[in-house]
Amino acid sequence: MYEFDYHRPGTLDAAVKLAGEADAKILAGGHTLIPTLKQRLAAPKHLVDLHALRELQGVHLKDGHLVIGAMTTHAHVADSALVKAHLPGLAQLAAGIGDPHVRHRGTIGGSVANNDPAADYPSAVLALNATITTNKRSITADDFFKGMFETALAEGEIITHISFPTGIKSGYAKFPNPASRYALVGVFVAQHGADARVAVTGAGANGVFRASTLEAALKGNFSAAALDGKSVSADGINSDMHADAAYRAHLIGVMAKRAVAAAH
């Protein structure tokens, strides 16, 4: 790691101010940032740790929405009675991120802000059409993810919470990379009335994306059988030593079916 100054602001205002400094990076759970720093792939001058901001932690039900603070850990979401009752698919996703130790530190805000193409959360945020709220504004999921490691967030902008609509049948199925256990392919499906949203992580060369052919197939018939014979084009799908595009594209179909079958 290169040297940096560490800050642990006690208020959001102070955090925003620090995060706005040149070469500042926000430290949430740290499970992407710290390995990156260890490899000397980033050299921030300031690290702004959000752990003291209690208002960014926890799960609440408000106006029919699950509001999850950005600094809420994966373990908290996975175990939350509210999440389990209102969006069990989301709880299931959180329970499968990384390993138990990672889930104790990693946060939803960190995961979504980082938009790692193999992270789990972006698929749920996109499929559930969640709203990301920052210190400045609210952004819908469709406008938030801008490509691999790219989001609509401005420099120094801090996610405060993410709000998920409830009353939606949803499910998640992941095929993990055998080595890293990140998603090789992860598919989150959500039934929005007669429509369906299907978001895919791990597979897109440009990060999380919606699988329109699968969404069309599920329209009006939210069942695994509706996906029989439906496939996703391998164009724009990642290819690496673990899985080529054709295999990943195939897995998207398989995981989508399993996600629908598991949805409730």
């Binding site: 642990r8 710290i34 740790d49 373990a75 130790h101 990672v102 530190r105």
Partner: peptide
């Protein structure tokens, strides 16, 4: 009270 990976946590963050 929670198991974490001490190689991915800053000491200063555990003040």
């Amino acid at each position: 009270g929670h198991a974490i990976k001490s190689c991915t946590t800053l000491a200063v963050a555990c003040e």
